[in-house]
Design a protein around this nucleic acid. Structure first.
Length: 269
DNA sequence: AGCTCATGGCGAG
DNA sequence: TCGCCCTGAGCTG
C-alpha cells in the first residue's frame, strides 16, 4: 500500500476529516500514549506529505511524524468509533469520524526543526509543489549504481517505491541494471514527467495503475485481469507471466533486498 | 498453530 | 549484506 501517492492521499484525507475541530487523540496500543495525552483535544491545523513521510500539525505548532514502513495501515471510519483493537498506535476521533493507524515504522511527536531535518534528507518529490528534478538527476548522472536502486533511494527522489520503480522502468524500456550515469537527460526528463503524472493519478484513485489505454486487456482483445495488489500493472509481481506487450516471461531478481521485476525483451537498454 | 510474504528503512558489522 | 522493527493476509498443516 504505502508509496508516495498513498501518503499524499492520506494528508488530504486526514485534513478533510479533522481540520479545525477538537480531536480526541489516543494510542490504544500504548507506544504513543504520552504524546497522545499532550495532543488530546487539540485541533489538526495542517497536513503535509514528503515522499513516504506524513506530517500532521496540531495547534499550528506541533507535528506528528508518521512513516508507514512496509506494514503500516490507516483506516478511516464514521462515528461512532468502535472500540480500538490493541494494535492501534494512533487514533484520532471527532464527532463525525475516526481514523486508526497501525503498524507504522514511525509515529513521533516532533518540533519544526526535526521536521526540517526530515525534509533535508529527502530528494525531490514529484507530488510536492515546485520539486526540482535536476537535483535528482545530478545525483543519478554521477552514480555507477543501477537506475533501479537509485529510483528507490529516497535521498535521490522521494516517494517512489517498488511498484512505481518497476513500472516506470518498463514504460521507458530501460534495463533496471543500467548505471545511473548512463541515463540521458532526455530519459530522465521523460521518467520524471511520467512519474509525476502516474503518481497524481495514484493520489486521485488511491491505487497504482500504469497500463496505457492501448494496452489494457480490452484494447488488446484479452480477458480482463485483476492484479492482486489492486491496480493494473505491466510487470510488478508478475514473475514468469507473459509480458503484456511481447509475451516474454517477466523476470524477477532480488536487488538490495527488494524484488525487482522487468521484461528482458522490452527493457534491453 | 505456524510459516511466508508484503507497495520500507535503519543500524551494525 | 544482514538482521531487525512494525502488522496482517494467505497459505500450509
Amino acid at each position: 500500500m504505502p508509496e508516495g501517492h498513498t501518503i499524499h492521499r492520506l494528508a488530504l484525507d486526514y485534513g478533510t476529516r479533522f481540520f479545525g475541530r477538537a480531536t480526541r487523540v489516543t494510542s490504544p496500543q500504548g507506544k504513543f500514549s504520552a504524546a497522545a495525552a499532550l495532543l488530546d483535544g487539540a485541533a489538526l491545523t495542517r497536513t503535509e506529505a514528503h515522499g513516504k513521510h506524513l506530517f500532521l500539525c496540531f495547534r499550528d505548532a506541533e507535528w506528528i511524524h508518521i512513516h508507514l514502513g512496509l506494514f503500516g495501515k490507516v483506516t478511516f471510519g464514521d462515528a461512532p468509533a468502535p472500540p480500538p483493537t490493541d494494535t492501534v498506535r494512533l487514533r484520532l476521533a471527532g464527532p463525525t469520524g475516526y481514523v486508526d493507524l497501525r503498524g507504522p515504522t514511525t509515529c513521533a511527536l516532533i518540533a519544526d526543526a526535526e521536521k526540517q531535518a526530515v525534509h533535508a534528507r529527502l530528494g525531490p518529490d514529484p507530488l510536492r509543489e515546485d520539486p526540482d528534478p535536476a537535483t535528482a538527476y545530478a545525483r543519478i548522472r554521477r552514480s555507477r549504481t543501477s537506475v533501479a536502486a537509485l529510483l528507490m533511494d529516497q535521498k535521490v527522489i522521494a516517494g517512489v517505491g517498488n511498484v512505481y520503480r518497476a513500472e516506470v522502468l518498463f514504460r521507458h524500456g530501460i534495463d533496471p541494471y543500467r548505471a545511473g550515469r548512463d541515463l540521458t537527460p532526455a530519459e530522465w526528463d521523460a521518467i520524471w514527467a511520467d512519474l509525476a503524472a502516474l503518481m497524481r493519478e495514484g493520489v486521485r484513485h488511491n491505487r497504482i495503475d500504469t497500463v496505457r489505454p492501448e494496452h489494457t486487456p480490452e484494447a488488446m482483445g484479452r480477458p480482463p485481469r485483476v492484479d492482486d495488489h489492486g491496480g493494473e500493472v505491466y510487470v510488478y509481481r508478475r514473475a514468469d507471466q507473459p509480458c503484456h506487450l511481447c509475451g516474454t516471461p517477466i523476470r524477477t531478481a532480488s536487488l538490495t533486498a527488494r524484488n525487482l521485476f522487468w521484461c528482458p525483451t522490452c527493457q534491453r537498454t
